[in-house]
Nucleic acid binder design. Structure first.
Lengths: 233, 233
DNA sequence: ATAAAAACGTGTTATATAGCACAAAGGTAA
DNA sequence: TTACCTTTGTGCTATATAACACGTTTTTAT
């Protein structure tokens, strides 16, 4: 069963940050331009070089934003979780995408044409502040990440990634199993290392009893120690 | 002679991007909150951890934004040129500074309290779009930079830095001497390498006739080749 | 002008990490 | 089942780059 139309209440719940600053007329306008799209596991959402057309908000699932670099090596730049907005930066900068996006898991995404967003921005300053805040936060993270990825050693980078995944996607009922199951390759691409080094370092962490690994399932056991490793690099 | 008050015409000339979207009343308000500060060569403008209070616009000089990382190593995150705005990101993200800023050369900087900027933003959507654009551009650059610094080899990173310096600060009358004279250490910190490797690689470029070095003066001779080196990593 | 301190340059060594080869395990399709 | 492809795991080797040591040159301060 495919829903043709969503009620405004449903939309309001899906994209609260965007919805809340709007006037009633603006809400109606947005509701008319609101579409929903599903993506399968591992499906590409957009590619590097494409022209951005829509603001996207991830309603359900997990997404990676990545960049293919030198010699087939891929770098995961950031990951998106529930209720996060993405794909709008390039439009605002008047560029094509410099990154690509793909679904880690089956995803539901809401799309709003950027022309529509810009129109709302021209008449709603509060909405502008929302984007300013969001971009400012992301820029800070990106700057921090540049230094982490370039200066920390392998163990520090992997420990940081594990803690980051816990922060972002949380844990299961046992309070320590990461809720996201990544391939070793994705974990490597997130941490700027080769797949074999991700595998090796992960095993080392396991024999040091910092984590327990069971296939792609990772339990964080000694978080304090991981934080220490992440910090000292 | 210290100027106490600037005419609105002078302010308009100094910060056109910020000034242009404002109404007359808003211009008056901004003019009342506009101050100017000078910094000496190598002087620190702000430090990591401090609380941001002012939007800054560089009127004259050259500034580096950097981050001290693991083991005393410093990483230059971006550089600021004439008429560029900085120091506002952390305020919008509601954070303390995660970077520091220092003057490469004697600088004149205009300061506007962030409270004043936010007040203007609340009533002027066009001004909001200016910040959205700027942050979007910077975020794209930061993402690109993350991949360059992690994946390119030393020669690629240094070549990229040299080309980047030309793009940013331009060249002297001869059309090939970089207008900025950096220490080898700053060049290294910009390119994510040790000082000795910056020195060595620079000499290599010189013996390959890609550049001519005369102390801190660098002439780009074979820009095409440098672009190639930068691109292939 | 002189001393002191930075910055620059170069050779050597050490090491973190990539790269490669190959085997085992697990999942997928016919 | 069988075959096949992807992912995971492990050992070995190669190499890019950091780290160190030391001399020289340039800048800064007194």
């Amino acid at each position: 069963m495919v829903k043709k139309e969503l009620s405004e209440a449903e939309i309001a719940e899906s994209i609260p940050d965007l919805w809340q600053p709007l006037t009633d007329a603006q809400k109606d306008y947005l509701a008319q331009n609101f579409t929903i799209q599903k993506y399968k596991k591992n499906e590409t959402i957009y590619c590097e070089g494409e022209t951005p057309k829509h603001l996207m908000c991830l309603l359900k699932g997990k997404v990676k934003i990545y960049k293919d670099g030198v010699g087939g090596r891929s770098q995961i730049i950031r990951v998106i979780k529930d209720k996060e907005y993405f794909a709008y930066r390039a439009y605002f900068a008047n560029e094509n995408f410099v990154t690509a996006a793909a679904a880690f898991e089956p995803c539901t995404i809401c799309l709003i044409p950027m022309t529509c967003i810009v129109k709302l921005l021209e008449e709603n300053a509060e909405l502008g502040l929302f984007f300013i805040r969001q971009l400012s936060i992301d820029l800070g993270i990106s700057d921090e990440r540049t230094v982490s990825l370039t200066q920390k050693h392998i163990r520090g980078r992997l420990a940081e990634s594990l803690l980051f995944l816990k922060d972002t996607y949380g844990v299961e009922e046992d309070q320590c199993t990461l809720s996201i199951y990544l391939s070793r390759e994705d974990l490597a691409n997130l941490s700027n290392m080769t797949t074999s080094n991700a595998i090796r370092t992960l095993s080392n962490f396991a024999s040091e009893k910092l984590i327990i690994i069971d296939g792609r399932k990772i339990k964080l056991i000694d978080e304090e120690k991981l934080k220490k490793i992440s910090k000292i690099g």
